[in-house]
């Protein structure tokens, strides 16, 4: 940053009494703010992926169940449990793989 930007940055970082902020940290190292941004990016990404997977799985499950009902095959507990297990694994794996 140039000197003018530095002044603006210093002015923007002047202590204030109260401030509405989505995140905060107490340490004086750059690791904390960098980790905040990294975490925010991954939280957002994981949430988006999980939402998309949820909707896709929901639509597939409803389509499958409609097919079962039309075919006369009753929905059983193993079928439903298998579907939920897959959904649960996806829900847990996505944030774990994209760990904040």
């Amino acid at each position: 940053m140039n000197s003018a930007a530095s002044d603006m940055h210093l002015q923007a970082t002047r202590p204030v009494e109260q401030l509405s902020a989505p995140a905060a940290y107490q340490s004086g190292s750059a690791a904390a703010p960098a980790a905040i941004i990294n975490a925010a990016i991954r939280v957002r990404r994981a949430g988006a992926v999980m939402t998309a997977l949820h909707i896709v799985c929901l639509c597939l499950a409803l389509a499958l169940y409609a097919y079962l009902c039309f075919s006369g095959i009753p929905l059983t507990l193993p079928m439903l449990g298998g579907y939920w297990l897959v959904a649960l694994l996806i829900a847990c794996l996505v944030p774990c793989l994209n760990r904040p």
Binding site: P22, A23, Y25, A35, I37, A39, A40, V43, R44
Partner: peptide, 20 residues
């Protein structure tokens, strides 16, 4: 859990959407 080790906090999903 990760930010707590740095002494930082992120206020939920909405805050993550702001910072992201």
């Amino acid at each position: 859990d990760r930010l707590g080790r740095y002494g930082a906090m992120l206020a939920g999903s909405a805050a993550a959407a702001e910072v992201e």
